[in-house]
Amino acid sequence: MKQQLIGTGNIAGVGATITRRAALAAAAAFALTTPAFAQEWPTGPVHVYVGFPAGSSPDLLARIITEPLAEKLGQPVVVENKPGAGGVIGVQQMLAAADDGHSFGTTINGPLTTAGRMMPDLGYDVATDIQPVALIATSPLVLAVSGTSEVADLASFIDLAKAEPGALAYGSVGQGSGAHLTAELFNNAAGIEMLHVPFTAYAEVTTSIIGGEIDAGFMAPSAALPHVAGGKMKMLGVTSAEPFAQIPDVPVIAGNAGLPADFKAELWNAFIAPAGTDPAIVERLNTEVNAILSDAEVQKKLLDMGWQAAGGSAEDLAARITEDTEMWGAVIDKVGAAQ
């Protein structure tokens, strides 16, 4: 019982002689030696930090996971929305709050991969401060053009772009955003040149494409999909390796129209913990998240929002972070988006 008191950081009953540092060290020691600690975890509400406002896509995704998670853990799971700086604030706040194994986070890929290259003071080092838990879901982007465009498929789009380099303009949701970097990756792979026009939200990019102000854009499938049905937009290709379940008819870009067969660009969302979290807790969370993701209803909810349920081990996620950091890092260096 005494172990649990110390482990939760509540040392009020232990006596004033124990300093905070000593208590933390003791907690860490107990955590490593006694499996009982992880079994009794969680001892209180679990906080999941999300770097986006309530109701936004990353927030809704987090809630799809945290709701069943609360049931499985037997403790309330509170979503803490700490929006800002493309999700980086959420990660920072998770790290600032973490002291007792009850603060975690879900985040999109940006704060774990590209943010380190784009921002001068990230406030954390992904390699040493973040403990990956599990990949939650992935989402490709689609190359969308106006429904009235003369372009019919990917090949004719690339031909048009090659006919007059720099004449086509594409929209993104900001310098260094997934949409921007994906488009630059695509430019590179297809050997074309397009003018980058940054916007702040997909809604603006959509208006601009439909209104004929710009020619194309890489967008989240769920942002483009509603306009395809009404004939206002066309989707020329998807950036995942396999056709995406939400839009099965859209061809993959990889291997199409002369593009390399390994062309792949995906956004993802992952469950993370602060580094130094008890490995048993990480293991438990990984198991629970994977169990939740294997539920067909959860998968459908995710897919409706444009996310493909992923899962896998903590090591898989760590590998994915390293791999994507390298890939996007090369693109960032090329376009000079780094500060």
Binding site: P53, G55, S56, L60, A203, T207, S222, K301
Partner: peptide
Amino acid sequence: IPGDPIMALMLGALVIHGIQPGP
């Protein structure tokens, strides 16, 4: 096309119900 962030959040709530807001 949501005109402001709050409107976007409202549409997000619809997506939860599997309704794709759109034209």
